[in-house]
Protein backbone atom coordinates (compact mmCIF):
# COMPACT_ATOMS: atom_id res chain seq x y z
CA UNK A 1 0.00 0.00 0.00
CA UNK A 2 1.43 3.41 -0.93
CA UNK A 3 1.79 6.25 1.55
CA UNK A 4 -0.99 8.06 -0.18
CA UNK A 5 -3.37 5.18 0.44
CA UNK A 6 -2.34 4.62 4.06
CA UNK A 7 -2.70 8.29 4.92
CA UNK A 8 -6.42 8.07 5.55
CA UNK A 9 -6.55 4.87 7.57
CA UNK A 10 -5.96 4.49 11.28
CA UNK A 11 -3.44 1.93 12.50
CA UNK A 12 -6.24 -0.17 14.01
CA UNK A 13 -8.01 -0.48 10.67
CA UNK A 14 -7.54 -3.16 8.06
CA UNK A 15 -8.80 -2.59 4.54
CA UNK A 16 -9.64 -5.10 1.87
CA UNK A 17 -10.32 -3.72 -1.59
CA UNK A 18 -12.23 -5.46 -4.37
CA UNK A 19 -12.54 -4.10 -7.89
CA UNK A 20 -15.26 -5.86 -9.84
CA UNK A 21 -16.45 -5.73 -13.45
CA UNK A 22 -19.90 -4.17 -13.90
CA UNK A 23 -21.62 -7.39 -14.77
CA UNK A 24 -24.53 -8.83 -12.82
CA UNK A 25 -23.45 -11.93 -10.96
CA UNK A 26 -20.18 -10.52 -9.73
CA UNK A 27 -21.94 -8.94 -6.76
CA UNK A 28 -21.62 -12.45 -5.33
CA UNK A 29 -17.86 -11.94 -5.05
CA UNK A 30 -18.42 -8.97 -2.74
CA UNK A 31 -21.17 -10.78 -0.80
CA UNK A 32 -18.97 -13.81 -0.12
CA UNK A 33 -15.90 -11.75 0.77
CA UNK A 34 -17.94 -9.59 3.15
CA UNK A 35 -19.67 -12.55 4.77
CA UNK A 36 -16.42 -14.47 5.21
CA UNK A 37 -14.84 -11.41 6.80
CA UNK A 38 -17.83 -10.75 9.06
CA UNK A 39 -17.91 -14.36 10.22
CA UNK A 40 -14.28 -14.17 11.22
CA UNK A 41 -14.86 -10.86 12.98
CA UNK A 42 -17.43 -12.64 15.14
CA UNK A 43 -20.75 -11.45 13.69
CA UNK A 44 -23.79 -13.67 14.26
CA UNK A 45 -25.52 -15.52 11.43
CA UNK A 46 -28.53 -13.21 11.10
CA UNK A 47 -26.31 -10.13 10.99
CA UNK A 48 -24.17 -11.76 8.30
CA UNK A 49 -27.28 -12.54 6.28
CA UNK A 50 -28.35 -8.89 6.59
CA UNK A 51 -24.89 -7.74 5.51
CA UNK A 52 -24.93 -10.02 2.46
CA UNK A 53 -28.25 -8.66 1.31
CA UNK A 54 -27.15 -5.05 1.82
CA UNK A 55 -23.85 -5.61 -0.03
CA UNK A 56 -25.66 -7.36 -2.85
CA UNK A 57 -28.15 -4.49 -3.22
CA UNK A 58 -25.41 -1.85 -3.14
CA UNK A 59 -23.25 -3.61 -5.73
CA UNK A 60 -26.12 -4.42 -8.08
CA UNK A 61 -27.25 -0.77 -7.86
CA UNK A 62 -23.72 0.29 -8.81
CA UNK A 63 -23.66 -2.16 -11.74
CA UNK A 64 -27.15 -1.37 -13.02
CA UNK A 65 -27.65 2.31 -12.31
CA UNK A 66 -24.25 3.89 -11.66
CA UNK A 67 -22.24 2.06 -14.31
CA UNK A 68 -25.20 1.25 -16.58
CA UNK A 69 -23.99 -2.35 -17.13
CA UNK A 70 -20.83 -1.09 -18.83
CA UNK A 71 -18.48 -4.00 -18.14
CA UNK A 72 -15.38 -1.89 -18.66
CA UNK A 73 -16.37 0.20 -15.65
CA UNK A 74 -15.46 -0.98 -12.19
CA UNK A 75 -17.35 -1.26 -8.97
CA UNK A 76 -14.97 -0.68 -6.07
CA UNK A 77 -15.84 -2.29 -2.75
CA UNK A 78 -13.83 -1.36 0.34
CA UNK A 79 -14.21 -3.52 3.41
CA UNK A 80 -12.78 -1.73 6.43
CA UNK A 81 -12.33 -3.83 9.54
CA UNK A 82 -12.32 -2.11 12.91
CA UNK A 83 -12.38 -3.71 16.35
CA UNK A 84 -16.07 -2.96 16.82
CA UNK A 85 -17.48 -2.53 13.33
CA UNK A 86 -17.26 -3.39 9.67
CA UNK A 87 -17.57 -0.58 7.13
CA UNK A 88 -18.47 -1.42 3.55
CA UNK A 89 -18.21 1.25 0.92
CA UNK A 90 -19.37 0.64 -2.62
CA UNK A 91 -18.40 3.10 -5.34
CA UNK A 92 -19.32 3.15 -9.01
CA UNK A 93 -17.78 5.19 -11.82
CA UNK A 94 -21.04 6.53 -13.09
CA UNK A 95 -21.76 10.12 -13.87
CA UNK A 96 -25.46 9.61 -13.26
CA UNK A 97 -26.39 10.65 -9.75
CA UNK A 98 -28.93 8.82 -7.69
CA UNK A 99 -32.01 10.97 -7.27
CA UNK A 100 -32.20 12.41 -3.76
CA UNK A 101 -35.87 11.49 -3.50
CA UNK A 102 -35.09 7.92 -4.50
CA UNK A 103 -32.52 7.60 -1.74
CA UNK A 104 -34.93 8.54 1.03
CA UNK A 105 -38.23 7.14 -0.23
CA UNK A 106 -40.06 4.32 1.48
CA UNK A 107 -41.49 1.86 -1.01
CA UNK A 108 -44.90 0.39 -0.44
CA UNK A 109 -45.80 -3.12 -1.49
CA UNK A 110 -49.41 -2.42 -2.43
CA UNK A 111 -48.28 0.51 -4.60
CA UNK A 112 -45.55 -1.60 -6.14
CA UNK A 113 -48.07 -4.27 -7.09
CA UNK A 114 -50.00 -1.68 -9.09
CA UNK A 115 -46.96 -0.46 -11.01
CA UNK A 116 -44.99 -2.00 -13.86
CA UNK A 117 -41.72 -1.19 -12.08
CA UNK A 118 -41.75 -3.39 -9.04
CA UNK A 119 -38.14 -2.64 -8.15
CA UNK A 120 -36.68 0.11 -6.06
CA UNK A 121 -36.36 -1.84 -2.85
CA UNK A 122 -32.58 -1.93 -2.77
CA UNK A 123 -31.79 1.35 -1.06
CA UNK A 124 -34.65 0.95 1.37
CA UNK A 125 -33.40 -2.54 2.27
CA UNK A 126 -29.87 -1.26 2.83
CA UNK A 127 -31.21 1.39 5.19
CA UNK A 128 -33.29 -1.16 7.08
CA UNK A 129 -30.51 -3.71 7.41
CA UNK A 130 -27.39 -1.67 8.20
CA UNK A 131 -26.66 0.34 11.35
CA UNK A 132 -25.42 3.42 9.49
CA UNK A 133 -25.89 4.28 5.82
CA UNK A 134 -24.64 7.29 3.91
CA UNK A 135 -25.00 8.13 0.21
CA UNK A 136 -22.32 10.46 -1.13
CA UNK A 137 -20.39 11.37 -4.26
CA UNK A 138 -16.97 9.74 -4.58
CA UNK A 139 -14.00 12.07 -5.20
CA UNK A 140 -13.79 10.64 -8.71
CA UNK A 141 -17.42 11.53 -9.41
CA UNK A 142 -19.19 8.19 -8.96
CA UNK A 143 -21.86 7.36 -6.45
CA UNK A 144 -20.74 6.01 -3.13
CA UNK A 145 -22.66 4.10 -0.49
CA UNK A 146 -21.04 3.78 2.91
CA UNK A 147 -22.62 1.18 5.19
CA UNK A 148 -21.63 0.35 8.74
CA UNK A 149 -22.54 -2.71 10.76
CA UNK A 150 -21.64 -2.73 14.47
CA UNK A 151 -20.25 -5.71 16.27
CA UNK A 152 -22.20 -6.18 19.50
CA UNK A 153 -20.34 -8.37 21.91
Amino acid sequence: MSNEETAGSKPSEKVIELRLPSRLGYERVAMDAASSLARRMGFEGDRIAALKTAVSEAVTNAIEHGNQHNETMKVVVLLTVRDDELIVSVTDQGSKSIDEAYVSRVPNISEAMQKDDKGGWGIWLIRELMDEVEFTKAPGGGNQVRMVIHLER
Partner: peptide, 8 residues
Protein backbone atom coordinates in the same frame (compact mmCIF):
# COMPACT_ATOMS: atom_id res chain seq x y z
CA UNK B 1 -8.87 -8.79 14.55
CA UNK B 2 -10.01 -11.90 12.74
CA UNK B 3 -11.04 -14.65 15.09
CA UNK B 4 -9.53 -18.04 15.19
CA UNK B 5 -11.70 -20.54 13.40
CA UNK B 6 -10.74 -23.78 15.12
CA UNK B 7 -12.23 -25.66 18.05
CA UNK B 8 -10.25 -28.61 19.38
Amino acid sequence: MLEDELTV
